[in-house]
């Protein structure tokens, strides 16, 4: 009996994962591929940063390191105005889209109501629709709105920051809603029940339990909205008016006219900005973990 027990115990002991990991040769290939992918992802960025400090006009000739293009940049009124517009558009559209998207996520994930499925489908469309189609939609929409406003109300509307912000809100709501909803889905509904059981009203339960637990999701959604807004070229260029050019649209028009080291400098600043955003959000998220239920008893692939 005990001999049998010992034998089964030996059988049940997990084998060392090493035997399950790919063979050494395959492992080398995989690692090599990973290094190549990382090189592929980062080399262009690194090259851009280096070139932005190149004093020479030609990208291929190193003229020594200088801040020449950065100095030119900060005295370029067009760049500064575009940067200002970009920030206004990004912040405004992010604030609005985050509020609306979070509410949409809560309505979809925590309540049962008629029309829920239809709304779910409609919310999904802006995510899969290509920029170009979205741009066409927004352009034609505002043309019609302006025509209507002019004919019926005698108000003249014009393309500008407002039309850009509204367009960005239109596509950002969905992205925020999806990110927040994933977080909500990962949060056990029983916590809200526990709050209600402990005398919290629906609002108190949201304020003290749901909101703190989905905050990283809301922050992630807002960051995504901010990034998408700062990324957008096509939609913005369709609904921008005179004087409301954003930084990506301005850079895009510059690039099409030809590459100058000034663009390198602008690009590096834009990259630095987005990286800063990510790092800030990552450190925020790192501090706020929890609320997610980890599935237990399931092991993932062995670590080689």
């Amino acid at each position: 009996m005990s001999a049998l027990g010992a034998a089964t115990a030996r059988l049940r002991r997990p084998r060392p994962p090493r035997t399950l990991a790919p063979t050494r040769a395959v492992e080398r290939l995989l690692a090599g591929n990973a290094w190549l992918v990382f090189a592929f992802l980062y080399l262009p960025i690194i090259a851009l940063v280096v070139l932005s400090f190149n004093d020479n006009r030609l990208a291929s000739v190193w003229g020594g390191a200088s801040l020449r293009w950065y100095r030119e940049l900060v005295s370029d009124a067009a760049v500064l105005s575009a940067l200002r517009n970009s920030l206004i558009v990004a912040v405004a559209s992010t604030v609005v889209a985050t509020a609306l998207g979070t509410a949409a996520a809560i309505a979809l994930e925590r309540f049962r109501w008629r029309g829920r499925r239809t709304f779910d489908g409609m919310l999904f469309l802006p995510v899969i629709i290509p920029d170009v189609t979205m741009a066409v939609m927004m352009l034609l929409f505002f043309v019609q709105v302006f025509r209507f406003a002019g004919n019926m109300l005698g108000i003249t509307g014009a393309f500008g920051l407002t039309t850009i912000i509204l367009s960005h809100v239109a596509f950002n709501i969905s992205f925020v809603a999806i990110v927040v909803r994933a977080r909500l889905a990962g949060m056990d509904h029983v916590l809200e029940e526990a709050a209600a059981d402990l005398y919290a009203s629906p609002w108190q339960s949201f304020r003290h339990v749901t909101l703190p637990l989905i905050a990283p999701g809301i922050a992630g959604g807002a960051l995504l909205a901010l990034t998408l807004s700062l990324d957008d070229v096509v939609i913005t260029s369709f609904v921008a008016g005179p004087g409301s050019t954003t930084l990506p649209v301005y850079v895009f028009s510059l690039v099409r006219r030809g590459v100058t080291p000034l663009i390198n400098a602008v690009s590096v600043l834009m990259l630095a900005g987005s990286m800063l955003l990510v790092i800030v959000s990552l450190s925020l998220q790192g501090r706020r973990t929890g609320g997610e239920r980890r599935r237990d008893g399931q092991r993932s692939l062995p670590s080689a």
Binding site: A104, F111, L123, L140, F141, A170
Partner: peptide
């Protein structure tokens, strides 16, 4: 009551997306 509350919470987003997405789509 739950259905009413859900619709109410979703309403701002539904209205916005109807005006800024569904109607533009129909116009296109």
């Amino acid at each position: 009551a739950e259905a009413r509350r859900g619709l109410l919470i979703g309403l701002p987003a539904i209205a916005t997306l109807t005006v800024l997405f569904a109607i533009p789509l129909i116009i296109v």
